[in-house]
């Protein structure tokens, strides 16, 4: 929406009984936000093509048999939308419950926690969590039915294969953001994709090979878009494991990446004189949150030199 100019025709959308105006080409989510309706989103990210898979953003659209995902449904003049009807509340609550009973959301944003409170999420109704297990290499179309006493989850061993970053898929909600960032939407490396099917679907390299043996170029863009902390910098992971991660003690310094002439903006997160992670501002016109290995991890060399 940032690129909309005054010349774009405006259309009327009724959100929860109030008419708001949005530019043509806007989504129902844009309309909901214009109205000020706090609309939960998980898979949606401004800089990526909507995949509309999480379904937490659903709204009731007059004339539609089912609810519709607001993040990707185009708004049209005269659309009438309910964002807080019993149907909408029910689906949002259940989507969050189904996720929270399956995935470790402890590192998700404060927004997610707020939405879980708002919709009264209660994961206990599905029973205690089943024991963790391996999830790679499961066969599509086959599974062992449990006796239902416990609730199956995606809990699995964490993947730590190098010094750059950690993949903790017990925290993965399968939002496809990393796949998009690695592929067509940013990096064009296509190192990771969704593999398997159904509940056994997972983010994977080919044959679950380690990242350093895959097409990964360690741009870290997937980390940058992961909403649940499933993908983290090794430095951050180590600090968290050691109990020494402390965002209150971190300074964030904006700078321009020195490695080439593109001019990517970097945000250096510094804790006790140590660069603990590097991010890139989402709203920056050049990078849109994306970087390459040099900007993202080049500081490791700076630091290593310093400590030699």
């Amino acid at each position: 929406m940032s690129s909309q100019t005054a010349a774009t025709p405006m259309i009327d959308v009724t959100v929860d009984g109030e008419v708001v105006q949005v530019p043509e080409g806007a989504t129902l989510l844009d309309a909901c936000r214009t109205k000020g309706a706090d609309t939960p989103t998980l898979c949606y990210l401004e800089t990526l093509t909507p995949v509309n898979v999480c379904r937490v953003c659903v709204v009731e659209l007059e004339g539609s048999r089912t609810l519709v995902p607001s993040c990707s449904r185009a708004a049209y003049h005269g659309a009438v939308v309910e964002t807080d009807s019993p149907r909408v509340r029910h689906s949002r609550k259940l989507v969050l419950e189904l996720l929270a009973s399956t995935v470790d959301l402890s590192r998700a944003s404060g927004d997610v926690k707020r939405w879980m409170d708002r919709y009264d999420v209660d994961t206990a109704r599905f029973g205690p969590a089943a024991a963790p297990g391996e999830r790679d290499g499961r066969d599509p179309g086959h599974h062992h039915a449990s006796d239902g006493a416990t609730a199956e989850t995606v809990a699995q061993p964490v993947k730590i294969h190098d010094e750059m970053y950690v993949r903790d898929y017990s925290k993965c909600i399968l939002c496809y953001r990393c796949v998009e960032a690695c592929g067509e939407d940013a990096q064009n490396s296509f190192a990771i994709a969704v593999a398997g099917r159904g509940f056994d679907a997972r983010i994977s390299t080919e044959f679950d090979r380690k990242l350093d043996q895959s097409a990964c170029v360690y741009c870290g863009n997937c980390i940058g878009v992961c909403p649940t902390g499933a993908l983290v910098f090794k430095s951050e992971y180590d600090h968290r494991e050691a109990g020494t991660w402390d965002e209150a003690k971190q300074n964030v310094t904006r700078t321009v990446c020195p490695y080439c002439g593109v001019g990517c903006n970097l945000e250096l997160h510094v804790q006790a004189n140590e660069i603990v992670k590097v991010t890139s501002p989402m709203d920056h016109s050049v990078t849109q949150g994306h970087l390459c290995i040099k900007g993202r991890f080049g500081w490791q060399f700076v630091q290593n030199r310093g400590s030699e």
Binding site: V53, R55, V95, L98, V194, R197, G198, F199
Partner: peptide, 16 residues
């Protein structure tokens, strides 16, 4: 078994 796994209501709902 046959859910494609894309969306949460079906991927997890069919398990529950």
């Amino acid at each position: 078994d046959e859910s494609c796994g894309q969306c949460v209501p079906c991927r997890v709902g069919t398990v529950r």
